[in-house]
Amino acid sequence: MTNIQTKMELNKEFKDIKYILTSNMRGKLLLAVYEIPKNLDELRNELKKPSATILHGLKELETINLVRKAHKYYELTSNGYLLTTNMIKLIENWNSLSNCEIFWDNHDLSAIPDDIMKNIYLLKDAEYVSSTTSDLSIAFNRYIQLISETTKLQIILPIYSENHLKHIIDLLNSEQLQKLELIVSEEIYESIHKNKKFRKELLNNKNVKTKIIDKNLKIFLTSSDEFMSLTLFFKDGHYDDSQILIGRDKNTLKWAYTLIKHIGAELCENK
């Protein structure tokens, strides 16, 4: 038997998350009154449970000051609102991960800092696109289509790919793309620089700003006012051009913006 003291310590450490997350009733009640106060009838209809069960759950939540009763209506206290909002974030984080579990599980995520990973709920409406054996370039084509529709781009580019670079240069030359910020590692910068065309039409283009970071980036992130896209590396170090995550909603753009800002803050050299 695990001794009593250890049990008590464990209980103390995790009791709150256990209390909130494992009860069938408490979590549901918090979510039910999250947006508007409800009375017992409304809660009974919504949760399809007998009054006694609901009242018992409400009493428990009242005792720990997450819910209060005002004129027959149950509502969240300020503590209850703060906690439930964070519980929703947890649920959304898990949903967001499980929606694209293949994508997250297949790749090296070391380039994404913890604080940004913890806000993965922001990607809950992002679309996962994967190439198929019959069409290996679905992800790449979607990417090219996306960047062709915008005038300003920020790209964290961890690979030297003539295919990608040629498309970007075409967009710059046609003046479809009017502003490009490129974040690359020293190694990638050198590779681009060695190519005469890329040096002239990309690195020396007045509409292109290049930032060099002193480490190898393991993330291919593109961000604009309209969309963001993300591709990653396999855990064995190889770049994966077959799977892409695309988002156009406000939250996804915010997530990408935060990540670029974070990586930008690590910049050691600005060219």
Binding site: I17, I20, L109, M117, I120
Partner: peptide
């Protein structure tokens, strides 16, 4: 690890 981190983040918020 990510699932666990998000759970611990919730714990910290409490």
């Amino acid at each position: 690890e990510i699932y666990f981190k998000t759970l611990m983040d919730f714990k910290k918020s409490i």
